[in-house]
């Protein structure tokens, strides 16, 4: 039985697509057949982040309309076995995704994959709603910043009321918090909400903390999921996040400042 994981946040620019790419690649690397689906119709970007933008022929909407089958639209990753992506359509038609269409495509994907990672668009409109509707798990991506935390709380409200699990009265969608762009030194100075603050406000389970890192932009420049940059702090943080999701116990490694006492005392 495939598990459907939505990566969502409400607010834009907090790292949903970065997280979707890294998380999907991590699951695949752990041996699970994984597909990452881009729900951001009209603003396709997952292909670029995963470095397969030149291999897109057919997309999600083509499959819904029956203009291509799933196998024609899926792009198999060249670096990681068991990993595929389904690109979003660049159409300007906002209603291109239909509930029945999405359900049919997810059912098709469930036959071939263990994990279906749905990269949600920002906002709470149709695309975001459909990305979360069929989810079993939700990764709520949040920056330690007021507008992002507030929007995440709004999304948590939607996850508990506007999903298939909620409507059918089944077990609720499992919510996991991923805090991104975390800067322990700024938290130490009292300039940034701490992970504990964010967890307390949102009252959900913390899955991972991704430090603010130059590796993220470098990876997106190269079209490579940042988790594949195994030497980088962000890559390692995503690796821990995936392992925790799969049930392993791992400590949070990037919660404290790496700087020494000297620079802490004298600023710098």
């Amino acid at each position: 039985m495939a598990r459907i994981v939505v990566v969502t946040s409400g607010k834009g620019g907090v790292g949903k697509t970065t997280t979707s790419a890294a998380f999907g690649a991590g699951l695949a690397r752990a041996g699970h057949r994984t597909v990452v689906v881009d729900f951001d119709v009209g603003l396709r970007n997952l292909d670029l982040i995963m470095g397969c933008e030149r291999r897109v022929v057919y997309d999600f909407v083509n499959v819904i309309h029956g203009e291509a089958n799933l196998n024609q639209a899926l792009i198999r990753d060249k670096r990681v076995d068991n990993l595929a992506i389904l690109p979003a359509s660049q159409t300007r038609d906002k209603d291109a995704l239909t509930q029945e269409g999405v359900e049919k495509v997810l059912e098709g994907l469930a036959e071939e994959f263990d994990y279906i990672v749905c990269d949600s668009p920002a906002g709470i409109e149709r695309g975001a709603h459909l990305a979360m509707y069929y989810a079993d798990d939700a990764l709520v991506v949040t920056n330690p910043e007021v507008s992002s935390v507030r929007d995440s709380d709004r999304v948590l409200g939607l996850l508990s009321s506007k999903t298939r699990r909620a409507e059918r009265g089944e077990d609720p969608v499992k919510e996991h918090l991923i805090v991104t762009r975390y800067s322990p030194s700024r938290v130490g100075k009292g300039e940034m909400l701490s992970v504990e603050d964010v967890c307390e406000i949102l009252s959900i389970n913390l899955l991972g903390v991704i430090p603010e890192s130059t590796a993220v932009l470098n990876a997106s420049n190269a079209g490579m999921p940042v988790i594949l940059d195994e030497k980088s702090d962000a890559g390692q943080a995503y690796d821990d996040t995936v392992a925790r999701f799969l049930g392993e116990k791992r400590d949070h490694r990037f919660l404290t400042d790496k700087k020494g006492l000297f620079s802490k005392l004298f600023g710098g």
Partner: peptide
């Protein structure tokens, strides 16, 4: 510290 202001406002 601005973070504690942020936390209070958010709560």
């Amino acid at each position: 510290a601005s973070a504690s202001v942020a936390k209070e406002r958010l709560q």
